[in-house]
């Protein structure tokens, strides 16, 4: 029994050591592990122009302007995190989920004038999943406007009276 007990303690000690080593190195690398930086990060410490980075945030409501450039769709919009916002320009096809109020991650470079030239736009969807009729009912009742933020909590949808179509 003592040998088993000793093996158990050795194992636990190794686990604690390994766990704290990992926690320490993860917190040291914390800033390098981010997939994207937010507009307020860019405002606080602007990266050198020309350096490629990922900028992430929400598409600001009312900021999307679409046009055509050389046969390709071109889009200008602002990415915001609520505290700062950056103007972004992108030429190319946007993902299906792109809309005002949607989270996006754009890859590109900052230009000297502070605007961002994106070469790739990824849509980031949130963790809420909602049937279309619930979304329509929430929008119709004025409880939620998708371009302005997150929907009310899911627990409230289930008590929501969903009017039948054509009813």
């Amino acid at each position: 029994m003592t040998r088993k007990r000793r093996r158990l303690w050795v194992l636990l000690a190794c686990g604690v050591g390994l766990g704290s080593a990992t926690a320490l190195s993860l917190s040291a690398f914390r800033s390098n592990l981010v997939f994207f930086v937010a507009p307020s990060d860019v405002a606080a410490s602007p990266p050198p122009p020309g350096r490629s980075l990922r900028l992430g945030g929400l598409v600001e409501a009312g900021s999307v302007q679409k046009s055509v450039m050389g046969g390709q769709p071109a889009t200008r919009f602002r990415v915001t995190d609520g505290r700062a916002s950056v103007a972004v320009s992108y030429v190319g096809i946007l993902p299906d989920l792109f809309r005002e109020g949607q989270g996006v991650v754009t890859l590109g470079t900052l230009r000297p004038d502070g605007s961002f030239r994106a070469s790739e736009v990824l849509a980031k969807h949130d963790e809420t999943y909602m049937p279309k009729d619930v979304a329509d009912a929430l929008k119709r009742s004025g409880l939620w406007r998708p371009s302005e933020g997150a929907p009310p909590p899911a627990a409230s949808w289930n008590t929501l009276a969903v009017p039948k179509q054509g009813g």
Binding site: T22, R30, V34, G56, K124, D126
Partner: peptide, 29 residues
Amino acid sequence: IIKFSVDWWNTLHQPDSITLFGAPTMSLV
């Protein structure tokens, strides 16, 4: 790290919809 990656860092992947303590952010259907 897998479990909390979406909370600790900026990720493209969305956070979990079903958590141990919070209400699920998903329609019951």
